[in-house]
Design a protein around this nucleic acid. Structure first.
Lengths: 337, 337
DNA sequence: CTCATTTGAGTAATCGTTTACGCAACTATA
DNA sequence: TATAGTTGCGTAAACGATTACTCAAATGAG
């Protein structure tokens, strides 16, 4: 049965006080070279490592950030996570990733738990509603990605310019001579997809095309994958004999599902219908035909979010000068248009 | 500036001692109905929530488990994570997910950090080497998934029966009349892929086919995606004019990459070459042709792992009776065979 | 040699909980 | 009316670190 060694044990073994051991380990305060050697050798020999719970309690600082994410299996999210986590790791800060599975209750619970764990910062990625930072017991620095806070007191919001992304995608289809463009999206209510839809509408209006509500499909995605959601929606649309010559899908898996369904119905892409997706997910790159899509600059978003959060954490009381940081998107032309 | 309330504040506000507040909040010990009401109302009014760092320090129990995973963007892993996390969430235990990005140093650092955070249990998923549980300062219950511990003292190892999976895949190709089956795998050294290869060899030998080392491709996957890895390997194989009529790829993205590359080279699947993948990743289901694959029972693996860990956590000192829990795989027939 | 300064290290308070222990005030029993 | 048992709650000691205060000893300046 292993027993964790405490700083007291090390103090006793090195013949000094706990204060001295602490000073040596944190290289903070005064001690002679000899005591240093002595303490370090004891630490090494007996394999002591500091109890970070006690350290956190005393310092009121956990050297840890929390990250709330709706779905780690989403490629865009997992890239963000990986990069942000890596950024903070290099600074000696560890990351607690909380996967809420899009469950609002779970999100609340995790928010509370992170708060109680004294995390030094918070990154909140996407989600159905605003993030409710009001229930936090302390003023924790927060950065949102593709998400709004409830009271945007001193919270930065980083994300792609989704309106412009949606606009670019739609405009591109229009330029390719599409007249009736189907908008395919899931029925969840994230700010990012709403923005993309706004971009779509903007482009349609600007081109003086008819904004046909029938062409806007908010597909229910209960318990089924995005692919299947798209499949079902397109089958349904085809059965209604609704005419369309272009599809803007608000993510690549929807686009992919749509394309496969069109194929199955002997409708050729891009000849009869052109398709644009969103996210530049691997699937868009590797499928045949490869999917024209709107690329989000994940690296840039991750870096900006991490940078801002780190600054907020380092300088308590710092005020954010820019609340919204919009990162431009990029259209990637591929075979579906 | 918000200041976190402590139990002392609540005690003062309710006119009782901290002990009583604690007893009420944990419903543990004796107190009158009136004090209960009083304390709870104060708690509600002032929005107190307990500091779990202090609680953890005092209880020597964090109600938290750690999970070490090489790559959260892998679909199999992210399913495991989601399910295990959900299992423990329901039991009031939160999960810290650590993404090591396949970096051994990072893994060590995170292991140490989780140890220092006093996690009550540990799940270690896959990885290049054995998990080095010897550097832990306490006896933390551990369950490995597709992974070996360094000293398998009292550690359960859960996972698919990869040998059998590899065998099934290969045997199936053989039954479909393939004579020269290419094995396509990444050059990383995980136990699971090694096992799959063993299964391949077993099937080949059993059928008295020639075990041609040229047919075993361990593709280098440095800095490129699995798809590209497969692409490169197959191009290379084709340029060598190596003959083959079947491919067993140790995961679905490799299979997918291989299929697309064959197509590009006017080799038809399944007519000229039949392909079997592994994992039953979404891609295998949704691509055309859909990929025959070996399904891993993620739900079952996740549940078993979680169950065992939870038991070990609940009954300290409990001995594991079964060290290896092998979950059978299932072949899913699709269009590539 | 004297007095001021620097150096090294110990003492004890603190962070916010939980809980063993003790004790007064009730309640119940005979 | 004693006495035993129960109930409600407060006191204080942990948990394992950090750090503000001390203070003796060593060092330096004049």
């Amino acid at each position: 049965m292993k027993k964790q060694l405490s700083i007291k044990d090390i103090a006793k073994l090195s013949g000094v006080s706990t204060a001295t051991v602490s000073r040596v380990l944190n290289d903070n305060g005064r001690f002679s070279k000899e005591t240093r050697e002595k303490v370090l050798s004891v630490v090494k020999e007996f394999g002591y490592s500091t109890n970070s719970v006690a350290k956190t309690l005393r310092e009121q600082k956990s050297h840890t950030i929390g990250m709330i994410v709706p779905d780690i299996s989403n490629e865009f999210f997992s890239s963000l996570i990986t990069q942000i986590e890596s950024y903070f790791f290099d600074k000696g800060i560890s990351t607690i990733i909380c996967n809420t599975n899009k469950d609002a209750e779970k999100e609340k619970a995790y928010l509370k738990s992170l708060d109680a764990k004294l995390v030094d910062g918070l990154i909140c990625i996407s989600g159905q509603e605003e993030i409710d930072e009001t229930q936090l017991s302390r003023d924790i620095p927060i950065v949102c990605i593709d998400r709004q806070p409830k009271v945007s007191n001193n919270i930065a919001i980083v994300g792609s310019d989704h309106v412009d992304g949606g606009y670019k995608a739609t405009k591109y289809l229009i330029d390719k001579d599409c007249k009736r463009i189907l908008l395919l999206t899931k029925d969840n209510n994230t700010t990012s997809s709403n923005d993309r839809i706004d971009g779509y509408k903007k482009a349609i209006k600007e081109a003086h095309l008819q904004l046909d509500p029938d062409l806007v499909i908010r597909a229910s995605s209960k318990k089924i994958s995005k692919f299947e959601t798209a499949q079902k929606s397109i089958e349904e649309v085809l059965s209604r004999d609704l005419e369309f010559d272009g599809i803007f899908a608000t993510n690549d898996w929807l686009a992919y599902g749509a394309i496969q369904t069109l194929k199955k119905n002997q409708i050729s892409v891009p000849e009869e219908v052109k398709v644009v997706g969103f996210d530049n997910d691997s699937i868009s790159k590797y499928t045949t035909p490869s999917i024209t899509t709107i690329h989000q600059e994940v690296n840039c978003i991750a870096e900006k979010a991490a940078d801002i959060l780190y600054q907020l954490m380092s300088k308590p009381g710092m005020q954010i000068n820019e609340h919204y940081i919009n990162v431009p998107t990029r259209l990637i032309e591929r075979e579906t248009t």
